[in-house]
Design a protein around this nucleic acid. Structure first.
Lengths: 225, 225
DNA sequence: CTCATATGTGTAGTTTATACGCAAAAGTAA
DNA sequence: TTACTTTTGCGTATAAACTACACATATGAG
C-alpha cells in the first residue's frame, strides 16, 4: 500500500497584538526545502504525541512562545504541497500575549520574528494560503467568540479592546455603542485600578471573567458583537 | 524517526433528510478491528490523491452515495484512537439527497444503512465523538449558511424547508416569520409549478438560487436565520 | 356541499441597533 | 493657577429588526 509514505506535520499560525498591530509569528527556515525563507512554525508529529502536543512542542522548540489559546484551523492535504513528498499538515491557530515572554530561535529556525499581517514576507510551501485562512478565521470568530481577551493583557482599559476590534475588523466602531454592548454581556469585571498613559482622563481597568462567560454560554446566552 | 508509522485516513459523516428525519449513513464493518460493528464510512488516503478525492472514492466504493455538499469537519489525532496503531483521521461532513440514488455495500462494508440521528447504534473507534461534533456543526451552520437546500429536493415547497429547520434546530418556528425572513433574503426563486400531496391547499414550489446567493455574499449580505 | 387539512398573507408591540453630544478627569504649557 | 488639549465615561432619540398572533384561500375526502 502506498499510504505508508504519507507524512504528517502540524503548523501553527500564532497571532499577537500590540498597540494597534496584529502580528503573526514566523520563522526563518534553517534547512532545505525553502532554506532561508520565512515559514509558519511547525514540524513532524511524533508517534506517541497528540496533535496538540506536537504543536506545543514545536512552538516551544522553535520560538519560545507561551500559547494562550489554541484551536485547530484546517488540514491541508494536496499531494503536491510539499516538495519533499506527500506531507499532510494539520494547521492550528494560536493566540498569545507578545509581551508575556521573550522570543528565541532554535532547532529548525534560524530566526523568529513578528510580522504585521499587513506586511508579510514571501512564505514557504502553501503557508500563504494557510495564513490567509487563519486571518479570516480570526476576523470572523472575534465577532461571536470572546477571543479578543486572549490577545490583550489580563487587565486592560476599554480603549485597548476597542482598538483591537477596530484593527481586526478594519472599520470604525462607535465607542459608546461598543462599550454598551460589551458591558451588557456581563462578562467583564470592572476593577478598582486605573491606568493613565500620557494625557487624558485615566481609564478604569477591566478583566475578562471566563468562568462567568462559560456559565452564560451554557445557559444559551451567546457572545456577539 | 518514528513519524513514518503514522497512517492517515479520511472519514465522512453523511447526512440525509427525509420527511422529518435527519439520518446519517453508516456501514457495518466487514473486517477487524470492530468487525460487524457500525462505523462512519472512510478509509486510508492513497499517496497520489487529495483528501477530498479520498473521501469521494471511499464513499463511492463503500456506499454508492452521490455527494451534494462536502466540507472538512475536524482532524482527530489522539494516539490511542485506533487499535491498529497510530491512525490520524481527517473527518468530513457531507450532505446528500437520499432519494437521488440507491445504496449498495461493497469493499470494506458488509451493509450500508441510514440511521436516524436520534436512534444511533453503538459505533466503532471514536466515531461517536466524530458524529456528535458533526451534528453540532450541522445544527450550528444551518443558521448562518444556506445548507438546508442541499438536503432537500431541488424544487421544494416551503413547508419542507420549515420542517427541516424545525427538526434540525429541535424547536418550533413561527411559520409566517420564518417565511418572511427567508424570502427577504432573496435567494429563492418561486416557480410556477405547484405540488399537492393529499388534502390541503397546493403549495408553490421554490428553488434555491445559488448564483444569486454567492453574489449577495460577495456584496457582504449574509444569510442568517 | 360540508368538513378537514395545509398553504398564504398583514399588523401591532417589543426589543435591539444606530446615531450622536457633552461633561469629567487628567496632563501640558503659558 | 489657569486655559487648553486629550482621553474617558455616560444618555437619549430614532430607526430597524424581531416577535407574537388570526384569518382567508385552495384543495381532497366523505
Amino acid at each position: 500500500m502506498s499510504d505508508q509514505f504519507i507524512k504528517l506535520t502540524v503548523d501553527a499560525v500564532v497571532f499577537g497584538y500590540e498597540e494597534g498591530n496584529i502580528s503573526v509569528l514566523l520563522i526563518k527556515r534553517k534547512y532545505d526545502p525553502f532554506k532561508g525563507a520565512w515559514a509558519i512554525p511547525g514540524g513532524f508529529v511524533l508517534n506517541g504525541e497528540s496533535l496538540e502536543e506536537a504543536v506545543e512542542r514545536e512552538l516551544h522548540e522553535e520560538t519560545g512562545v507561551k500559547i494562550n489559546y489554541l484551536e485547530q484551523l484546517y488540514t491541508f492535504g494536496k499531494p503536491e504541497r510539499d516538495p519533499r513528498g506527500r506531507v499532510v499538515s494539520v494547521a492550528y491557530f494560536a493566540l498569545v500575549r507578545p509581551n508575556a515572554f521573550k522570543l528565541f530561535a532554535s532547532t529548525d529556525a534560524a530566526e523568529v520574528e513578528w510580522f504585521n499581517i499587513k506586511n508579510l514576507p514571501k512564505l514557504s510551501f502553501d503557508h500563504k494560503n494557510i495564513l490567509d485562512i487563519a486571518i479570516k478565521r480570526l476576523q470572523g470568530k472575534i465577532t461571536y467568540e470572546p477571543l479578543g481577551f486572549e490577545l490583550l493583557d489580563k487587565k486592560f482599559p476599554f480603549s485597548d479592546l476597542e482598538k483591537l476590534y477596530t484593527t481586526l475588523l478594519g472599520r470604525d466602531i462607535d465607542r459608546r455603542n461598543f462599550r454598551k454592548k460589551i458591558l451588557s454581556l456581563n462578562i467583564l469585571d470592572e476593577l478598582e485600578e486605573k491606568t493613565s498613559k500620557g494625557s487624558g482622563r485615566p481609564a478604569n481597568l477591566f478583566q475578562f471573567n471566563q468562568k462567568r462567560y462559560f456559565q452564560l454560554k451554557k445557559e444559551g446566552i451567546i457572545f456577539e458583537i
